[in-house]
Design a protein around this nucleic acid. Structure first.
Lengths: 338, 338
DNA sequence: TTGTACGCGTTATCAC
DNA sequence: GTGATAACGCGTACAA
């Protein structure tokens, strides 16, 4: 009930509103006398005064909140990323507003506008959009309008020209992973790729195929199947791939989540992984090492990526940092072959 | 740069500020004439006007944001809960502000004050606090102050007298799970319990021990080990438990995360799960069914719980709903014995 | 160092 | 139905 404002504090302390304001926040180059300051602070404490961030935001012209937009917070990939973001934001006294785009296509634009109207200091967009030209343009417009008002934008895991981004070298990681598999003795490759218009999946698939072609082990189109980038998608992909005349000896999935689905699909088919078919993922989400067999994958420093992209969004430093280079992690799902 | 305000829109449309305001938000019992409304809306669109939520919040006296406090967003349990919260909030046009308490004890109080100063409409506290009497009191005070200002508070998975909470019947679920295991033929039980002062773990452990005692299979103290509620903790617990003279035939973990750690610990010891030792968890986080062997556990409807607690926080309906009853899910980690 | 007064962008209370 | 105008809670020139 009792809404204590700064005026109440000022009156209680017997000082002007301005002095009270300066005392509670330590305004620059305007020092309050020690005696008055303690009086104000005491009054504030006595009254249980808590500043109104909204009013401060309006008076100062800027808020202290950051918008984080992910596809699905229950997805371990985004959850880890979000953990990094909240940690970095916390360290700077910034609040994090979380939004999910889910699968709805226009949702991203809607959310950007929502965050814009909240006057967030920055917006972090995580997760690859499914590239629809018209919506891409609309999103770019929304972001441009936001930036015109002084907002900072940073992307992670996706690109949009003119917008600072923390890129991931998906192709490079895929190349290194495929290379290692060839070295391990694998010869018949299949790919559980994500949706055809899913940028990240595309890059990973291309990297794999390029490296394998270079090694004279090109992957025929019928051994590349596109499904949703989820466990279910991976499972479905495995079902299709294991039904091919010549069974692959390794299925490379576009993400760890899909790889876990592939493992399930292999079991569905009454086969053994990695005995009959080996499996690889990408991302190294926390559970990747917990499943059986533990997943060979390309490790992305998700937590640090979250922190990095937060700095990118909060500091107007300038250009985008170098792309993240994933590290190949060999585990039980791909034992040496032959 | 060009910060378009409602005044700009009003001027552009040739109407008063008041009319513009009424046109853009559709204020109650004050209808704007159709012709003027379209003019205002057109002007707003032309100028790229986006309302300032902070200003609206100040004028209206209430914001449109909800605070969500979790222990660690990278933990699948909280991630799923958060997904439910964001979904329910989204449906009501409410923004979600995410904060992590991590392990720091006083952090929870700090965060409540932070959310208070943001004038959040509600605060959802998820995750069991480690019960320190003094800090409990301090937290209660902070929440009380917040509620006095009109804020709504809701807890999930923990209790604090006088605060609406979505409770989980941990003891009941544990009782049912233990009972099923006895029915399956298990006799030598061990418990990978969480921290001793971790409320949720306590309740689950007590439920298990009570049911087993009732079945004349009391669990001796040396077969109950307390570790952190993490994978590492579960792994450590397994190491200790498997070193006991008489090896247990099933290890019941306080959470799925710990159970996954227990699985790893069993492998560390060169044993097989469930061949040598069966394992159970609690929560049914998404990965519980993906690990090998798939985890027997008590399924909690995490997503719905997130939605429910959001309603609880947003609607001043009154009392707390009935405790959530987890459902026992039998999987490969506990095959019938004998 | 302290106080006065205005502005931040919007809603709500009055009159008209 | 529409328009002035006073709040909302705070920061900050500007003056003292």
């Amino acid at each position: 009930m009792a809404r204590v404002t700064l005026s109440d504090v000022a009156r209680e302390a017997g000082v002007s509103l301005a002095t009270a304001s300066r005392a509670v926040n330590g305004s620059v180059n305007r020092i309050v006398g020690a005696d008055l300051r303690v009086r104000v602070l005491a009054a504030a404490a006595a009254l249980g005064y808590i500043p109104d961030a909204n009013a401060q935001a309006m008076a100062r012209g800027r808020t202290t909140s950051l918008g984080l937009v992910v596809h699905d917070i229950a997805d371990p990939y985004f959850a880890s990323l979000a953990a990094g973001v909240t940690r970095a934001a916390d360290a700077r006294g910034i609040m994090v507003s979380l939004s999910e785009t889910k699968n709805e296509p226009g949702r991203e634009i809607e959310i950007v506008n929502l965050l814009d109207r909240q006057r967030m200091v920055g917006i972090i967009l995580a997760g690859t959009r499914l590239g629809d030209a018209a919506q891409d343009a609309a999103l770019r417009d929304a972001l441009e309008a936001y930036r015109k008002r002084g907002g900072q934008v940073a992307l992670v895991g996706q690109e949009l020209d003119g917008v600072p981004a923390l890129a991931v070298d998906n192709a490079g990681g895929a190349v290194r992973l495929a290379g290692r598999l060839v070295d391990l003795g694998y010869r018949r490759f299949a790919i559980a790729a994500g949706p055809v218009n899913h940028r990240t999946s595309q890059e990973r698939t291309c990297g794999i195929r390029a490296e394998l072609a270079r090694r004279s082990l090109p992957v025929p189109d019928e051994l590349v199947v596109h499904t949703e980038p989820t466990r279910l998608g991976g499972r479905q992909a495995a079902a299709v791939l294991l039904d091919r005349p010549e069974r692959p000896d390794v299925i490379m999935a576009a993400t760890d989540l899909m790889a876990i689905g592939v493992l399930a699909g292999i079991r569905d088919a009454g086969l053994d992984a990695p005995g009959d078919v080996a499996v690889t993922g990408f991302d190294d989400i926390p559970v990747a090492s917990d499943v059986t067999p533990a997943l060979t994958t390309v490790k992305l420093p998700l937590l640090e990526m979250g922190e990095l992209v937060t700095e990118l969004a909060l500091d107007p430093d300038g250009g985008s940092p170098a792309p993240i280079q994933g590290e190949v992690v060999l585990r039980a799902s791909t034992p040496p072959r032959r």
